[in-house]
Design a protein around this nucleic acid. Structure first.
Lengths: 328, 328
DNA sequence: GGCGATAATGTAATCGATTTCAGAACGAAG
DNA sequence: CTTCGTTCTGAAATCGATTACATTATCGCC
């Protein structure tokens, strides 16, 4: 690879001038031309490592998510990437696999590689951001809130739980169960609280503890919990799924048993990925994942740009798509 | 951040010794202890940028894929990541969005950041790997073969097309259409050739050109093509979908029109992501995406390790899961 | 006791860009 | 014709680790 010195020699200028040409400070026209010629001839690309070492920052942001196979997060990643690449930043996607140790490794790499900022959906409540925050790098939390004083973007989770439950109540279902994610993830807890509030108001007679299940935020979690619920002495006649994959798992189990929705009512918090279901069968609370990514990326870029206002949390509204609606 | 000089000072040794402690060359026990103590006290992490600059290579590999929202590719990414992180490498996921320019940008970054190797599913037949290969970095092609003399891992695409078509023929369908990906992507072309071979042998009377459609490898592509096929004077009674997302799109359209499989036969090349269908309705040719990632990562790491044997292409076998099979 | 081999350690050069500082060239103003 | 202020330009320091080379200490063996 050609270096700045090679270009300087060919263009008969100093390395400093070459650098200036590429960084837009004042250089006379003829030298600019000479440098550009030489650079083109040598097929020169500035060495980013050297630049990063000197500048102490690289135009890369890290996006740390707990499950790269969940379309909710990849859709979010899309949003982040669009905004970032527009601004000349690249995005490095890191999959923590919901493990705090893997997450810590990636955060260490982010520091060591001088990345300019981090967008993170934390692995769980033990996620530790101390060392990354100590470096002064901006961090934006997405999807899940943290105990740190940093910017965040979250969904209106409680409202999502409530409207999912209400929609099923309005449709006439009576025993409406809830399958949520891990109890200690605030997203899951909030959605559960929303469901609980709607149910305890409308059906004070129900034993909600019996109808509530905590699972992993994955398909197998949804399957297992659904099977448990169906095995109850008095099974539910409807269920709220705490995220998209849980919804898939629950519907799979129901389908396998011939209980296709709407025979058993289903409301899912989050869009069903790549669904092949009839669009009228299931209620979906759409979560604007891409928009969440866009918003988080903008906030992060603002911070990188030096914005120093107090930390903000943006709450995104959801949109309910009742079971009877037509596919848009 | 603490540097090697800070550690050296605190431990009362030279910076060179500190470096040696972290790189495993001979240092006396007491100094090792002193350095480790000092490093721990200062919470020292070696600066990867500086190391990369000096070493001219970083322990990062790039994985460039055309669609991050396709679970087929994220499953593959999982495989890559598992192998890589086992070996101490991190994986940077780059989404080319099937655009050659975006792809070129990421390849440039990979060079400039001194990444040790690249695994790439090319955007299309115009993808240009010249400059990356000129740097001598190892490159492994996945999913799609290239015209370059490099290692590759592909599926048995022709066989997949054939067995999908045969399964539908065996089930008694007569007019079996094919919806594939873009014509110039070899993966798509091979699968189409497999379908064509099976059909022209069994149903020489059919006009296959009429029943063949090329779409994007996405849900909307599958939807549009399926609608076209249903609008034919004599619509098909079955269809082979060239990839998972096309399959989803096709099934969506069929479901919306009340033609749920197996009323119209459907065979999909690639696993249906997060399907909520009855497991018996659709034939699936399972593609071992994770295994492809694992294989590619191993090959790449071998090359990085200096393996210089002639380039190899691994073809992975598929497994057909007929429509009547039980969910595993 | 002295010689060479070996191991441990330090000094300084190096990777490739950015950036500070100082100096040169030039024009305008007095 | 000086003097001051711009605008360019280049030399050299810098970022933080690695590593070639030089130096010193240590040990075994004749």
């Amino acid at each position: 690879m050609a270096t700045i010195y090679d270009v300087a020699e060919l263009a008969k200028v100093s390395p400093a001038t070459v650098s200036r040409v590429f960084n837009g400070t004042s250089v006379s026209e003829d030298k600019v031309a000479a440098v550009r010629d030489a650079a083109a001839k040598l097929n020169f690309t500035p060495n980013r490592t050297a630049r990063t070492l000197r500048r102490q920052s690289s135009e890369v942001i890290a996006l740390v998510i707990p499950d790269i196979e969940n379309p909710y997060f990849t859709e979010m990643a899309r949003g982040v990437e669009d905004v970032a690449s527009e601004a000349g930043y690249s995005v490095v996607l890191c999959n923590s696999d919901a493990q705090v140790e893997k997450e810590a490794t990636y955060l260490r790499i982010a520091i060591a590689e001088h990345m300019s900022g981090i967008i993170i959906a934390t692995a769980d409540e033990n996620s530790n951001l101390d060392s990354i925050l100590a470096t002064g790098r901006p961090v934006v939390a997405v999807d899940r809130s943290t105990t740190y004083d940093i910017d965040g973007v979250v969904m209106a989770n409680r409202a999502a739980g409530t409207s999912a439950a209400k929609d099923l109540l309005d449709a006439g279902y009576r025993r409406i169960a809830y399958i949520g994610g891990p109890e200690h993830i605030d997203t899951a807890a909030e959605r559960a609280a929303g469901w609980r509030a709607a149910l305890s108001a409308a059906r004070p007679d129900l034993d909600l503890d019996e109808l509530e299940r905590f699972a992993t935020f994955r398909v197998d979690g949804g399957r297992a919990a659904m099977e448990e619920l169906l095995a109850l002495p008095e099974p539910p006649d409807a269920v709220v799924a705490g995220n998209n994959l849980i919804g898939v798992g629950a519907i799979q189990v129901l389908t396998e048993r011939g209980l296709t929705p709407p025979q058993v009512g289903v409301a899912v918090i989050g869009s069903l990925p790549f669904t092949t279901l009839s669009p009228t069968a299931v209620t979906v609370v759409r979560l604007p994942a891409r928009h969440m990514g866009v918003t988080a990326a903008r906030m992060l870029l603002d911070r990188i740009g030096g914005d120093a206002q107090p930390s903000r949390t943006v709450v995104l509204r959801n949109e309910i798509q009742p079971a009877s609606a037509v596919r848009s």
